[in-house]
């Protein structure tokens, strides 16, 4: 599939409504909408949505909905016990400035689903300085589980990306999420990157977290936020069993030069591991040590 620069339509479409998706698509409440300036209207990016739905059938999980357009090519993997596995392949360079990308995944009642991506996602500048959006919305029903384990997100110099991940969990749902962010490719400064992670369980907030890195984010590289670290990652686990066995806070890595991580129990039945490292290799080592993912 090739990317084509499309001339602007006579009336600019609202930024948060991808042209290729039906109007019924719920968009994340945190998706920022902005009035495009005339120069930003000159080029319209790719609008694409991937949809995944997993359902319980007999003793296993099936994937009745698996569709993606634009850069999203979705592949069924080999099932692992009663867990279905899906891999998102990126078939074009995305996100570039102006792109509007969505992933919507649902694990229905008692379904078990793991989603990975085949390669790192690299935010690049593209033909416009306008921001791109990449919104992920995950829903997990009663007694279901979802593993969201994408490859790293790399913020390349002069890129401008707003990423959000909104997760709605039923009271008995389980979640395993691992995300890694790399600020700049080797030897370059990062672009503008803002992220928002919103996790709700039974409609109540479990974790609400925004980050802003790169040009225009005050203090992002200072001693309170990243202090020169260029790779930051998280593992989030939500599991009702943690109510009975709440973990204790724990530190990993005692040398700030090679990276540090902390495991923190959240206020609900959830834990968050936050890791900071000079580069992606040392970040992975830290995250793997803190919580190996099978």
């Amino acid at each position: 599939m090739s990317r084509a620069a499309v001339p602007s339509p006579p009336t600019p479409a609202p930024a948060s409504t991808p042209a290729s998706t039906p109007a019924s698509t719920p968009t994340s409440a945190s998706t920022p909408t902005e009035r495009a300036t005339p120069t930003e209207r000159a080029v319209v990016g790719v609008h694409a949505t991937a949809r995944i739905r997993a359902a319980r059938a007999g003793g296993t999980t099936v994937v009745p909905v698996l569709s993606g357009d634009g850069p999203f090519d979705l592949r069924r993997g080999r099932a692992h016990g009663d867990q279905a596995r899906v891999c998102v392949l990126g078939t074009m360079t995305a996100p570039l400035g102006g792109d509007r990308l969505h992933i919507e995944a649902t694990a229905d009642h008692a379904a078990h689903l793991r989603i990975t991506t085949a390669a790192a996602t690299i935010a690049l500048r593209g033909p416009t300085t306008a921001h791109a959006t990449y919104d992920v919305h995950l829903r997990v029903a009663e007694h279901a589980s979802l593993h969201w384990l994408p490859q790293p997100l790399i913020s390349a110099a002069r890129s401008n990306l707003r990423q959000s991940c909104t997760i709605d969990l039923a009271p008995t749902a389980r979640l395993l999420l691992r995300e890694e962010i790399v600020l700049g490719r080797s030897g370059e400064p990062p672009g503008r990157l803002s992220t928002r992670l919103s996790v709700r369980r039974d409609g109540r907030p479990v974790l609400e977290q925004q980050t802003g890195y790169g040009p225009g984010a005050p203090g992002w590289d200072g001693p309170a936020v990243l202090a020169g670290h260029r790779a930051v990652g998280q593992i989030l686990i939500v599991d009702p069993a943690l109510d009975r066995h709440p973990p204790r806070a724990r530190l990993f890595g005692d040398n700030p030069a090679t990276g540090q991580a902390v495991l923190t129990p959240l206020a609900g039945p959830a834990l968050l591991i936050t890791a900071l490292a000079p580069d992606t290799m040392r970040l992975r080592r830290l995250l793997d040590a803190a919580h190996p993912i099978p």
Partner: peptide
């Protein structure tokens, strides 16, 4: 109108990490 999701949630990884370090 929009609930608490409308409120800022900016986080600083090092402040979280060092708070636990300091507590020990």
């Amino acid at each position: 109108t929009d609930g608490v999701a409308a409120l800022p949630a900016a986080s600083a990884p090092l402040l979280d990490l060092t708070a636990e370090q300091h507590a020990t």
